[in-house]
């Protein structure tokens, strides 16, 4: 699951930034390494939200500076979503 999330997020970041997936590592910093500006930051967030059908909350936004953080956050939100679905 985490591997799939990781791959999908790297694909999204690659599409938005233009960097080849091979050039993007888990520790790549969006702003320092991948030339992400405000427009691209929103583009990545919106694409992640649509792809995984999740909602990134305001308090989670500061956690979105590296690919690893994005993968962890998406993993956490997906887990919450599936546990909610189980309860329902």
């Amino acid at each position: 699951m985490t591997k799939l999330v990781e791959k999908t997020i790297i694909e999204i970041v690659s599409d938005v930034s233009g960097f080849d997936p091979d050039e993007i590592s888990m520790d790549s910093n969006f702003f320092k390494d991948l030339e992400i500006d405000s427009i691209k930051a929103i583009e990545i967030t919106v694409a992640i939200e649509k792809k995984f059908k999740i909602n990134v909350r305001d308090e989670d936004v500061p956690k979105l500076t590296t690919v690893r953080q994005a993968v962890e956050l998406v993993g956490k939100l997906l887990n919450q979503k599936s546990s909610k679905a189980t309860i329902a």
């Binding site: 702003f31 500006d37 405000s38 930051a41 929103i42 305001d58 500076t65």
Partner: peptide, 11 residues
């Protein structure tokens, strides 16, 4: 003066 990430909140 906001950093790029600040704008994510208003998307």
């Amino acid at each position: 003066r906001s950093p790029a990430s600040e704008f994510i909140r208003i998307r």
